[in-house]
Computed example of a mutant assay.
Amino acid sequence: MYDHILFPTDGSQGASVVFDHVLDVAANHGATVHVLNVADPGQVFQPQRDVIDALKQEGEEFVRDAADRARQRGVETVTEVQKGEPYSAIVDYATSRDIDLVAMPTHGRQGLERFLLGSTTERVLRRSDVPVLTVRPDDGTLTYPYQTVLVPTDGSTCAREAVETAADVTTANGATLHLLTVVDIASLGIDVRSDIQIAQLEETADAILEEAAAVAETAGAEPATETVEYGPSIHEAILSYIQDHDIDLIVVGTHGRTGFDRYVLGSVTEYLVRTSPIPVLAVREPSPEA
């Protein structure tokens, strides 16, 4: 399923922890890991040539250490150090080198930071046409191969892409596939309590699951469960399902956005990336050109 995996690293402890998981994935698939460090002159006030050279030298050490660890696991690597805006360099590298998966660490944040995009991981997630696997460095319960895979679906195009990707992951790992759709009652108003509206919601939710199951089966994976949940919060319902069913990986669709939406978090996918206790594999909706 994966031949080339891109792992951008800044040499931090968090990146080191996530790299262990990346090596598990790569070893299982016989994939080559591309280890990339991007020296960002923008982090230095009035950067001079000697400062930039020092950043690149530090980056060389980061990728060399990662390659040594990969070699001990029998995983082939390609290493590179670039200079520039990290998120842009990562997205361009993934596109130009036919990367199958980008794997990056993410951090849970509190307060205002939960709503403002700023990290390299989030920017890559917004722009990458390649699936992005995000892993929290503080997650001590990482499991691989994945045994249980969850796809929350709303019937959208990007959700369909997520189902197809999850079916591939499920088959490759010998895992069980869970399909979930959540009806956000709070956003529908007080009239949703009527029997007629409840029946309509159930019918719509069942149709979404039926279509998702058909997509999964066509891709070679028969869902183990198809569940409809009702609640005041979609992402909270998903997180609850993860805990109740011991899910190892969640696969979700995401939209690339521009303008103000690039800076204000609001989607379920972005919230899950910030808060999920397990790895999140985000699959972007295909561009019109594709």
Rank of each mutant, 00 (worst) to 15 (best):
F7L: 04
G14F: 00
V18Q: 09
V22I: 10
L23V: 04
V25N: 09
P41F: 02
G42F: 11
V51S: 15
L55V: 01
L55S: 11
A66H: 15
A67I: 10
Q72E: 15
R73V: 11
G74R: 11
V75R: 14
T95Q: 13
D100V: 01
D100S: 04
L101A: 02
H107V: 07
G108W: 04
G111A: 03
L112I: 15
L117T: 15
S119L: 08
S119V: 10
T120P: 06
T121C: 08
T121G: 08
T121P: 04
R123T: 09
V124R: 01
S128I: 03
D129W: 01
V132W: 02
T134N: 08
D138S: 14
L142Q: 14
Y146Q: 13
P152I: 01
T153L: 01
T153G: 02
C158P: 13
C158H: 15
A159K: 12
A172V: 08
N173I: 04
N173P: 09
H178I: 00
A186F: 04
D191E: 05
S194A: 12
S194V: 07
Q197G: 01
Q200C: 10
T204N: 07
E211K: 11
A212R: 06
A214G: 13
P223D: 09
E236P: 00
E236S: 08
D246W: 04
T254V: 13
R257S: 05
I278W: 06
E289Y: 13
